[in-house]
């Protein structure tokens, strides 16, 4: 048998096999999920929220994760389309790059929902995410209160990420209400602790009178804390975002990290499935559904710990 014949038979085999699969009967609603990653606590909590809500209605969930690989995530979505799921939830690896995969789902008339991270292309029924603007605003208000409405502050930024741009926008809105607070620096810490530490070190050198830092996520806030501690700077207050365990610990210990904005990933998960249920029942949905965020400081954390 030569190569060409073999290839032909192989292809016929595949087609026959997939035809056979079509016969499958569906009893309950199935939802395909492609998370950004499963290595992060945030997404673990989000997944838990999805599962809790889905269990209530007996939906079947197929949970996968793109693990920062666009190709992998696109393949996962195509797989969902082939399996004819009833809805798809995706946390895009790349807001633009995921467009073609979403459009394929659109063509197959499968509704697509995004959670946490939005897509810039394709038809998405509804995007469910933390209200990042509100989170930034909370951080700004809390910092202003700590500084008694006066002082110089800096942002350890990551301006290549959309959700971060929202956080910073909210932070700036809040600070704008206090004319005596000046944002003296806005530097890129790339959202990771080592780079944030270096950026914050530079900012501390340039501004000996700095009193506040907003870290756009906890790695940025903790990196800032490392810098503040290494240069023994007093009187700098840091606000972080997400309240991951080391950040919560730093707040509890009374370090320069004073408070953290917290998201409720579980709630995002629950809300997303709840919105899908509404969609199935024919309710029309808004394009964006913000999920509330909160802020925690030492006091709040001690209360939770006491429980």
């Amino acid at each position: 048998m030569n190569r060409k014949t073999f290839l032909l038979l192989f292809l016929i085999g595949i087609v026959a096999f997939s035809c056979g699969r079509k016969e499958e009967q569906k009893s309950t609603k199935t939802i395909g999920v492609s998370l950004l990653t499963r290595a992060h606590v945030f997404y673990k909590d989000l997944e838990e929220g999805l599962r809790t809500e889905a269990a209530k209605d007996g939906y079947e969930l197929i949970v996968t994760a793109g693990e920062f690989d666009l190709g992998k995530q696109s393949a996962q979505i195509e797989d969902f389309i082939t399996r004819k799921v009833d809805a798809i939830i995706v946390c895009p690896v790349d807001s633009r790059g995921i467009g073609p995969a979403i459009r394929k789902a659109n063509e197959a008339k499968i509704p697509v929902f995004t959670a946490d991270i939005a897509s810039q292309e394709g038809d998405v029924v509804c995007h469910v995410a933390s209200d990042n603007v509100a989170g930034g605003r909370l951080a700004g208000e809390y910092l202003a209160k700590l500084l008694n409405g006066k002082g110089n502050v800096a942002i350890i930024d990551q301006p290549t990420v959309t959700s971060v741009l929202d956080r910073v926008q909210g932070f700036k809105e809040a600070i704008a209400k206090f004319p005596d607070i000046k944002i003296v620096a806005d530097v890129n810490g790339e959202g990771v602790r080592d780079r944030a530490m270096q950026a914050a070190s530079d900012v501390l050198q340039a501004h000996p009178d700095l009193q506040g830092i907003f870290g756009i996520n906890d790695d940025s806030a903790l990196g800032s804390l490392d810098a503040v501690q290494q240069f023994h700077r007093e009187g700098v207050n840091i606000i972080g975002y997400d309240a991951i365990p080391p950040a919560a610990d730093a707040i509890m210990k009374g370090t320069a990290l004073k408070a953290d904005v917290i998201q409720y990933p579980k709630k995002i998960g629950e809300t997303t499935v709840a919105k899908i249920k509404e969609y199935f029942s024919g309710t029309s949905l808004p394009k964006v559904v913000p999920v509330e965020v909160g802020i925690v400081d030492k006091e709040a954390l001690q209360k939770t710990a006491a429980k």
């Binding site: 990771v192 080592d194 530490m197 903790l222």
Partner: peptide
């Protein structure tokens, strides 16, 4: 040295 400066081991360090 870097993890000592950060007082933690970061799997996303050094990107």
């Amino acid at each position: 040295l870097l993890s000592s400066r950060m007082n933690s081991g970061q799997p996303n360090a050094g990107v």
